[in-house]
Amino acid sequence: MLEGRKLAFRYGEEREWLFKDFDLRIAPGEIVGIPGPSGRGKSTLAKVLSGYLIPQEGSVFVDGRPLSTSGCCPVQLLFQHPQLAVNPRWKIEAIMRESEEPPPELLRGLAIDPSWLGRYPHELSGGELQRVCLVRALGSQTRCLLCDEMTSMLDSLTQVSIWRTLLNIARQRELGLIVISHDYALLKKLCARIIPYFED
C-alpha cells in the first residue's frame, strides 16, 4: 500500500505551494486517476511519491514503512517524455535489463520487438520507447506504478493494448496504479476512483 501523509511541496521559498496537506492512500490493486490542467503540479506530486523529490512537509510510506532510498524503489514512475528517462548512450537491451532480466511473457504482452534490442533510444519512436520504459519499471520489487501521461504519446490502438496488458499485470500482481492524465475519458475507463485535487 502506498500512502502520502500531509504532503506539501513548492519550488523555492517565494513560490506558491503546488500542494499542501495532501493525503493519499492507494490500496494494492487499486487504480486511481488524477486529472487536471498542465502546470498545476501533478507531475511534481508523482516525483514526490516516487522519491525523486523530497517534500518540504509530510512523508511517503510504502506498506507502513518510509519510502526506501536504496535499492529498487517500490514506487516506479513512468514519465511523459520517455526520451528524457533513458540514457541516450545505452542500447535498448541494457536499458531494459537495468533492474533485472524481464520475463519473456512481459515482453510479448507489451509487443517488444526483439529487433529493437540492439538499437539506441533515438532509433525508436516515442511509443516504442515508452513500452521499453514500462518493462524496466515492472521489476519484481515494484508495488505501485505512477503513470504520468504514459500513453499521451501513443495512437489509440496502442493505447488500448498497453492499458489492457498493464491492467492484467496489475491485477495479477496486485500493483497499485496512479494514472495522471488530461484525458478524462481515459481516466473514466480505467479508474475506480478519481482524485480531483488539481482540477479547477
Binding site: A111, D155, S156, Q159, V160, S161, R164, D183, A185, K189
Partner: peptide, 16 residues
C-alpha cells in the same frame, strides 16, 4: 483507430 478511443468503446479490433 476510431473505435479504440476511450470515448468510442476502447475496443481493440486488431493488434496495434
Amino acid at each position: 483507430l476510431w473505435n479504440a478511443l476511450p470515448a468510442n468503446g476502447f475496443r481493440m479490433a486488431m493488434p496495434p
